[in-house]
Every structure is written in structure tokens, then in C-alpha cells.
């Protein structure tokens, strides 16, 4: 069990999202920075889809009622466990009674906290994610409040950390860098790409866009030059996916995200590729972004590289934590770099 001490209502329980119910109008939900949740879960020995906390409102504080291994990932935010600094993408062992504190990020917007075993909330429509808009899933169907006591699963097995007194972390530089106030997002053309003509396409891909103040888990409104299709055709309602860049009549694009409606009717000029959705999660209102068209092949290869690297990371963590329950095949191309206890963590460790 963990007890929430300080929070905002848009902090919530999320896993990788709700799949299989788009045809009932049920949206994806799930961690906006899915890559961070996957990495954090691997660091504590979980499956990638275990439920963790997505923190977007700071400062955030919680207290552990029992010993628990945790990892934080995502935005570059100052964090401390019982007063000891806790770097991002670091796994550490918390003791009963200790407090974890996360302050506003220096870079990025959302922090993920993963707990060994995962958060134990009921599975609703095959996911533990909170659907904040609909008011179900996650913890009591809502964002977190002070005083909430949230249950954790007991881990299926405990791996050996006896040689890792300060925990361990990973060098994420090969995976991701937080661009600070600007990001480049790779896109594929949408159904109405042609309808915007060369002028509209160039405006989209050669302008610097700014994230407007309306930016939440449902979607982001962008500010920049107005885009207008050369020919307007009335579209019937159709399914849309997170990452869809729609252009409403005012010409200012909207990027649909985790809690977007499952159907829409605005022209779709482009789609942010799946491997770049986490970058969107780390943008804040006022940040700048640009779009770079890629081929379908590149989009798929980016996703494959991420999937392969995650598998390699999981292997390396099993080796480090002396978990020999899986066969090691050594066929992966990307080698994640794992870090042993940092000096400052070790100094204060027993």
C-alpha cells in the first residue's frame, strides 16, 4: 500500500492502455509516455504493462506503508526518496514509512513511477488505466487525491539486489533525450494530406508550431499559421487514433492523444508515428515543435528498434539481478547500458 500525501487531480494510475474496445467508443487511455512506463516497469522487474502512476502535477509526495522497489522515469524532475536524491530512470528500494517526493520537472512534463509488482486496482475492460474523461478504471475512476491509499500487487518473485545496495539505473541517452523547449515529431501523411496541397503541406512541415494552453490527455491544440484544405469535402465520422493531427475549420491543428474521442470528423493532415508519441507527452504549453515526414517503413523500423531494445534491456536487467528464469538468446542488436549504484546513492545507503 502507498499513501498519497501531495498531488493534483490529473495525476492518475495508468498502464499501457485499453485495447479492444474502440468499436464501443472506449478510448485508449494509458500512460502518455508509454516508453517511460515500459522502461520503469522493466527496472523493477515488472511486465511492461504493469500499472504505475503518471504524475503531471507537482510537487507530488507519497509514503510507503511497506518495503517496495520503485523506479522513476519520464521527465527530468528532481526527486528524492527519504531525502536521498533519486535520478530519473533509476530503481531503488524504499522502506516502509519512507517518503518519495517529486518536484516540478526541469525538462519535460510527465513523470512515471513504477512499483515492483504493479498497482493493484481492478481491471476494467482489460486495462488498469484511469479513463479520467469517463470516470472509470484506475483508482476509483478518478485522479489521485491526498489521503488515497493505493494497493500494490505482491511481486510474483523477488530478484536479487543484495549486490546493489543503492539500486541501479540506466543510461537513456541511446533511447531518448528531452529536447527541452522544442521537439521534432516524425509524421506519416493522413487521409486528407493531398487535400491541403503543397502549400498546406509545406506550412505544416516547415513551420515551427507552439503548444497552446489547451493541452491535456485528450489532445493538444497547436498555434501557428492557419492551414486550409484546397478543397473541402464533408467527412463522415470515422475512427481516429492517438497521434492524429486534425485540422478544424479555424486552421489550427489539434493532435489527438490518449483520451481522445474514438471517432472524429475533421480532416486529418498527418499522424505522429507511434514511436514518437512519448515525445508529445513531455511537451508543455508554450513549447515549440516541428514535424518531419517519414516513410511508412521508417515508422515501422522506429517501432521495431524500440521493441527490440526493450527486450534487450529486460534481459540485461535479469542478468544484473540474477534472475535466470528466462533463456538468454543474445540476438538483440541494441545494447542498453545499465548503471550500478551512483556514488551519491551509495554514500547514504546502509
Amino acid at each position: 500500500m502507498i499513501e498519497i500525501l501531495t498531488t493534483g487531480l490529473s495525476n492518475s494510475v495508468q498502464d499501457l492502455g485499453r485495447f479492444g474496445h474502440l468499436d464501443a467508443g472506449v478510448g485508449r487511455s494509458g500512460a502518455m509516455d508509454g516508453q517511460a512506463l515500459r522502461l520503469a516497469n522493466r527496472l523493477v522487474g515488472n511486465e511492461e504493462n504493469a500499472a504505475g502512476l503518471e504524475i503531471a502535477i507537482f510537487p507530488f509526495r507519497l509514503r510507503f506503508e511497506a518495503d517496495c522497489r520503485i523506479a522513476i522515469a519520464g521527465a527530468d524532475a528532481p526527486a528524492s526518496l527519504a531525502g536521498r536524491d533519486m535520478p530519473a530512470f533509476w530503481a531503488a528500494a524504499a522502506k516502509a514509512g519512507e517518503e518519495l517526493r517529486v518536484d516540478p520537472p526541469l525538462k519535460g512534463a510527465r513523470v512515471i513511477i513504477a512499483f515492483e509488482g504493479g498497482i493493484d486496482v481492478p481491471v476494467v475492460l482489460s486495462s488498469r488505466s484511469t479513463d479520467l474523461k469517463s470516470g472509470w478504471g484506475g483508482f476509483e475512476g478518478r485522479g489521485l487525491k491526498r489521503g488515497d491509499r493505493i494497493p500494490l500487487h505482491l511481486p510474483a518473485k523477488r530478484t536479487d539486489w543484495s549486490h546493489l545496495p543503492g539500486g541501479f539505473g540506466m543510461d537513456v541517452s541511446a533511447w531518448r533525450s528531452l529536447a527541452g523547449e522544442s521537439a521534432v515529431l516524425r509524421i506519416l501523411p493522413g487521409a486528407e494530406w493531398q487535400a491541403f496541397g503543397k502549400e498546406g503541406q509545406d506550412l505544416l512541415t516547415q513551420s515551427v508550431w507552439q503548444l497552446g494552453p489547451e493541452a491535456n490527455r485528450q489532445g493538444y491544440r497547436l498555434e501557428g499559421p492557419a492551414l486550409h484544405p484546397e478543397r473541402r469535402r464533408e467527412l463522415f465520422s470515422h475512427g481516429i487514433m492517438p497521434g492524429t493531427v486534425q485540422v478544424p475549420p479555424n486552421g489550427q491543428p489539434i493532435i489527438q492523444l490518449a483520451e481522445a474521442n474514438t471517432c472524429g470528423g475533421y480532416p486529418k493532415i498527418a499522424h505522429v508515428i507511434e514511436a514518437d508519441l512519448w515525445r508529445l507527452a513531455q511537451l508543455r504549453p508554450g513549447d515549440r515543435l516541428a514535424f518531419r515526414p517519414v516513410t511508412r517503413r521508417e515508422a515501422i523500423e522506429a517501432l521495431r528498434a524500440e521493441t527490440d531494445a526493450l527486450a534487450a534491456l529486460a534481459q540485461e536487467i535479469r542478468l544484473l539481478t540474477r534472475d535466470y528464469s528466462h533463456a538468454f538468446d543474445g540476438t538483440h542488436t541494441l545494447r542498453p547500458a545499465l548503471l550500478r549504484a551512483s556514488p551519491d546513492m551509495q554514500e547514504t545507503s546502509p
Binding site: 506519416l188 493522413g190 487521409a191 467527412l235 470515422h238 475512427g239 487514433m241 507511434e274 515501422i300
Partner: peptide
């Protein structure tokens, strides 16, 4: 019939004419 991409892992098949059929 038109088929377009909806990102990395989705396709949109559109068979709509001027009025709903």
C-alpha cells in the same frame, strides 16, 4: 474506395459517397 494511413499501426478504409449508404 480509398485506403489511407492512420499512423504506424492503422489503416482507414473509406467508401463514403456524397450521402450515407
Amino acid at each position: 474506395l480509398t485506403i489511407s494511413m492512420e499512423g504506424t499501426g492503422a489503416l482507414l478504409l473509406d467508401a463514403a459517397g456524397a450521402i450515407f449508404s
